[in-house]
Design a protein around this nucleic acid. Structure first.
Lengths: 122, 122
DNA sequence: CAGAATCCGCCGCGATACTG
DNA sequence: CAGTATCGCGGCGGATTCTG
């Protein structure tokens, strides 16, 4: 069984096609904040500072890393305006938009089964 | 911002309802093998050894842990037969079946955008 | 056959400090 | 404003060992 550089499960490549495709998607979405970033970008173009404000307390380092990974995977687009102070806008690519059904399904599931009592434990 | 015991993002509970529901779902699915276990159980009742064989090389300890978590979250059902040697069968609950649209969406996305060259890096 | 218990390595994430 | 660089910890997952 092959193991990927990034240590994730990419090994289901042969007959088990579904396993491969799910692993592929999971890989793009794996990360502490990626679901939320993508959801927040749904239908909008947002500035770096807006994303940061929306997500609350996460360090700039973490956010930048997540954004870079999403960009590398081709699901978000980064547009830099050569102004001072800097201005950078993020938006979904077509590929990123194609991920929305996944988030919609997760949202729908959570709406049905998620109850506050089950979640907040502190 | 509240932080949960298990260290995951459950803090989006107030106005940002979607964030909460997505976090809720993400939480159930977070884990190295859970997507694959659930997918393998889709429409079938499977024995422990079958799941193990399907997933290939993962340790029994890891598998048991994932299964216990999925059971605790109420998405899979565990049935023990009091025979020797032991026989245990796993299947999806209704709640687990309700997760299938998420996996279907991931599978669909992967089918469209996942290319072998993008995935296998070793 | 289907696990429980234990120990351990790794890396993802956050915190902090610094830059153009 | 929007990053980059570095460091350190915690927790997940894997390996191993032991049971009914």
């Amino acid at each position: 069984m092959k193991v990927c550089k990034d240590g994730f499960q990419k090994e289901f490549i042969n007959d088990q096609t579904d396993m491969y495709t799910i692993a592929f998607t999971q890989n793009i979405l794996s990360g502490r904040w990626k679901y939320f970033i993508l959801w927040y970008l749904k239908g909008h173009t947002r500035r770096y500072s807006d994303i940061k404000a929306f997500l609350g307390d996460l360090s700039q380092g973490s956010l930048s890393k997540q954004l870079r990974e999403l960009e590398k995977d081709g699901v978000i687009k980064r547009k830099v305006y050569p102004v001072v102070p800097p201005k950078v806008e993020y938006s979904l690519t077509d590929k990123g938009t194609a991920l929305m059904p996944v988030l919609d399904a997760m949202n729908s599931f959570g709406k049905t089964f998620g109850e506050q009592a089950d979640i907040i434990r502190e």
